[in-house]
Amino acid sequence: MTTATGRALPPKTVNAAFAGFLVSCVFAVTSIGVLVGTRDELVDALRASGTRMTEEQLQSAATITQYTFAGIALVIALVQLWLAFKLRSGRNWARILLSAFTALQIVSLFVGEGTATLPAYGGALVAGLAVVASWLPASNAYFETVKKAR
């Protein structure tokens, strides 16, 4: 399907993938909130690790860890959001990057020794479904059409 200007409109599969990646971004931002709520558990884990930090140092390390991971999660969500818009506009490189990032996201769930949160699992599931939708035949045809139009 094309517009009056001759530009290809994304099929339902690409729109579904786009929506899925938007939802996955919401899950990523939600995981930041969950991380902030686990401060006491983080301090306890640091204390149990046998470290010789004072209480003030433990609190500081927990704060630095939380801000670091929250910043990383926010950057990842923003990059994923940007790539989702590029995907919807027919950029195949964005589809490839989103597929790779989603694979890393799913693998990270199994590497973190059970530290993943429910939002992390939800975001990975939705992103995985979005990747599948972005590689369906209708999506492939759309990306090929956009490529030929350039």
Rank of each mutant, 00 (worst) to 15 (best):
T2S: 10
T3F: 11
A4P: 10
A4N: 08
T5Q: 04
R7A: 14
R7V: 07
A8C: 05
L9K: 15
P10W: 06
P10Q: 00
P11C: 06
P11W: 04
K12M: 09
V14I: 05
N15L: 13
A16R: 04
A16N: 07
A17R: 02
A17M: 05
F18S: 01
V26N: 01
V26M: 00
T30H: 02
S31E: 02
V34Q: 11
V36G: 01
V36T: 07
T38S: 14
D40L: 13
D40H: 12
D44T: 08
D44F: 05
D44P: 03
A48E: 13
G50A: 01
T51S: 13
R52V: 00
T54G: 11
T54L: 02
T54A: 07
E55V: 06
E56G: 10
L58M: 13
Q59F: 05
A61I: 09
A62W: 09
T68F: 11
T68D: 08
A70R: 03
G71Q: 08
G71C: 10
A73R: 09
L74F: 15
V75R: 08
I76E: 13
I76H: 12
V79K: 06
V79I: 15
Q80K: 10
L83I: 08
A84N: 08
F85S: 15
F85Y: 15
K86M: 11
L87A: 08
G90M: 11
R91Q: 15
N92T: 14
W93Y: 12
A94F: 07
I96C: 07
I96F: 13
L97A: 14
L98P: 12
A103Y: 06
Q105L: 12
Q105M: 15
I106S: 07
S108W: 09
S108C: 09
L109C: 03
L109F: 06
F110Y: 12
G112D: 13
G112M: 06
T115H: 08
T115I: 01
T117A: 15
P119A: 09
P119T: 07
P119C: 12
P119W: 06
P119M: 10
P119G: 05
G123F: 01
A124F: 02
A124H: 03
V126K: 00
A127S: 12
G128C: 04
A130S: 03
S134H: 04
W135H: 09
P137C: 03
P137K: 02
Y142A: 00
Y142P: 06
F143H: 06
E144T: 15
E144V: 10
E144K: 15
T145C: 00
K148S: 14
A149N: 10
